[in-house]
Amino acid sequence: MDQPIWITFFVSFIILNVLLIGMAYVTWFERKVLARFQDRLGPTRTGPAGLLQPLADAVKLLGKEDLVPAAADKWVFLFAPVVTFMTALIAAAVIPFGDTATIFGQEVNLFPADLNVGALFILAAGGAGVYGIILGGWASANRYSLLGALRSAAQVISYELILGFSLVGIFIMTGTLSLREIMLRQHETLSIGPLEVSNWFILSQPLAFVLFMIGAVAETNRAPFDLPEAESELVAGFHTEYSGFRFSLYFLGEYVSMIVVSLFATTLFLGGTSGPGAEEYWGLGLLWLLLKVVAFLFFYVWLRATLPRFRFDQLMGLAWKVLLPLALLNILVTAFFRLIANGEVF
């Protein structure tokens, strides 16, 4: 498992760049899919099927003036978008893109870090990312921004809880917080009578999966939980006063967290890179991972195209009155079965 440090740097470098390009194309993907939902075409003018649109967007955003409102708290205002963007990227560090592969005769770990508290690390990074929103909203000296930031704070506290609790079931089943080990456990095959199925945790933890998905949508501020930036109520929410590159940092931060949360969900519930042929060829495993992530991203866009937005109090009510009891119930039931399996009851 141990490898020279330069390989780790090299893998991280590749993953970082793939993630950044991927994020740019998620915006294209969302615009295209949303357009098809809404009986439109989406971007068509920039390159074939609008494929150069992210590039055009980047040029446009970089060319804009970096405005700082006169009443703003300048340094906090300038710093806040970086927090959101960086924490979103850092979270990807513990995602396993496969196990160890042999490339040009060299053993390479297809993950930047196998942290023994990987799952917690991602949750923590997501929680820290909210600081960017709160600080940016506060420093803008704009009431809409402030309201958006406050909404965001309350929302993330509530839904991080759901997100964390929904995963406890998996931790109980696997006895580890390392994402690599959780993924490897799902590569095993279960035999139920004549049926051979993969040990994906979506099968043994369906309730947790649903809770996790709801929590993940709220965590990434996506519709129908996009209250911090509800454009019909709060103009643009916390980033009302941001323009140019700083606005795009927020924007890209949101898309990176979408990808990371999709990767996280895939790793936890859908077996990560597991799939036919993934054991023999690590490239095929990556392909399976990509397909699963795209499915999740499609789900995000689908929600946005279909559902209206919750009201703030309803959002809180849903989290504390419905989702939290369900998450606790899931933990109880899982723990109970675990005890039976261990032979400690009955």
């Binding site: 949303l34 809404q38 009986d39 129908p224 209206p308």
Partner: peptide, 16 residues
């Protein structure tokens, strides 16, 4: 009205 409440696609269907 639907757009205000957050149902994004409705406005495009209605205008169609």
């Amino acid at each position: 009205h639907a757009l205000d409440i957050g149902a994004l696609s409705m406005s495009l269907y209605c205008f169609r």
